[in-house]
Design a protein around this nucleic acid. Structure first.
Lengths: 198, 198
DNA sequence: AATGTTTCCAGACAGGTTGTTCGGTAACGC
DNA sequence: GCGTTACCGAACAACCTGTCTGGAAACATT
């Protein structure tokens, strides 16, 4: 009862066609026929796999997130002893491999639904990272935990977006991680040398 | 040669209908007829004002950003002497007044195009704030300026998004600004009391 | 209050998209 | 080789889009 080779082939073709075409003309401007034509698949076949465009996109995004999760698991465990930046580095590596898909997701194609899936996945990872730490934290935090998580994920996603949109890598992944961590942990005053307030 | 009262009325009705309906069922699921019906306007009239849905949304967003810019101008000038947080506070105030519109823009409705307009506007403001500062900055910054700007705007937008999506205000705007500034300027170690690295 | 202009309306139009259904054909796993 | 399953191609109604009418209503101006 292994999965039919034909199914894998058409699903893969549809996936690739979607990514290519969204990159070319945007998700909304796309018709199902555009996709099936590019994928060299009959239109009727599309509907035997997915209810509509959105379901295909959602499915593709979910697969991507599962893959990312797989990679992040060991990195998060390692990062539990301190903010090592390993999870962020893994994410950048993943983004490099699946750059086109990352681009369209991070652009908010599909009315931002895939992007929301992505940020929520990141938020779960961040929450896991923070949880392990707050237990052995003595002093009272000066900021709300929900706000902290949102800010951190927002920072990450924004930088990731900036990074994947460049045609040539603007800087090596290791450096991005270093800067992101310095900025988040030590703050802008330390990172830029701007004069501190009185 | 003042503008025709009828034009203002129908434009306003279409704007309100758009915001309401996007909030209810999402931008893509919307038809032009849905909008004109809710606005109590003939469908043909819609096309005499806008080419399509997207142009209406883009126009509504642009108006919002112009309004925001108006409010930010004095705040940015005041903030030039130090990171006072005045611009962020103004933005939160604006978001409270136009909450529904902020919601749909920040959600990425319309394939993320309006959201991109928004973040770019924020980036311009941030750049202006940073520029005035970097001149009288002695030491070499430890992080890239482009990355810094991206991270800061991403942080802001993510928190704003979090803030407007709550049905009841999770915390007063002044407190959000304080936390956001503490976090961005002094960093997570200071803000949370997490143990510093060796 | 009269006038010439502009906007709005209701309806109709072709062209395209959607999602579903069908029988026939080919590829599949076993 | 055999029974099963996925694919194809074509057709279908329903809907949406964008454009274009002529006539009615609201407008700014005098």
């Amino acid at each position: 009862m292994a999965e039919d080779r034909r199914i894998r082939k058409t699903r893969r073709a549809l996936r690739d066609a979607l990514v290519e075409l969204v990159l070319e003309k945007g998700f909304t401007a796309l018709s199902v026929e555009d996709i099936t034509q590019r994928a060299d698949v009959a239109r009727a076949t599309f509907y035997s796999h997915f209810r509509d465009k959105d379901e295909l996109f959602a499915r593709v995004t979910r697969d991507l997130l599962d893959e990312l999760d797989e990679r992040l698991r060991p990195a998060v465990a390692e990062s539990a002893v301190g903010f090592t930046g390993k999870p962020v580095l893994q994410m950048l590596a993943h983004a490099r491999e699946e750059r086109d898909l990352y681009r369209i997701v991070l652009r908010g194609e599909g009315d931002g639904k895939p992007l929301r899936m992505f940020t929520e996945a990141c938020a779960r990872v961040a929450a896991a990272e923070f949880r392990g730490r707050s237990e052995r934290n003595a002093v009272e935090p000066r900021i709300d935990a929900g706000l902290l998580a949102r800010a951190w994920v927002g920072e990450q996603v924004a930088v990731l977006q900036w990074w994947v949109e460049h045609e040539v890598e603007p800087m090596p992944a290791e450096e991005v991680v270093r800067m992101l961590l310095d900025l988040a942990l030590r703050g802008r005053y330390w990172a830029t040398g701007f004069d501190r307030p009185a």
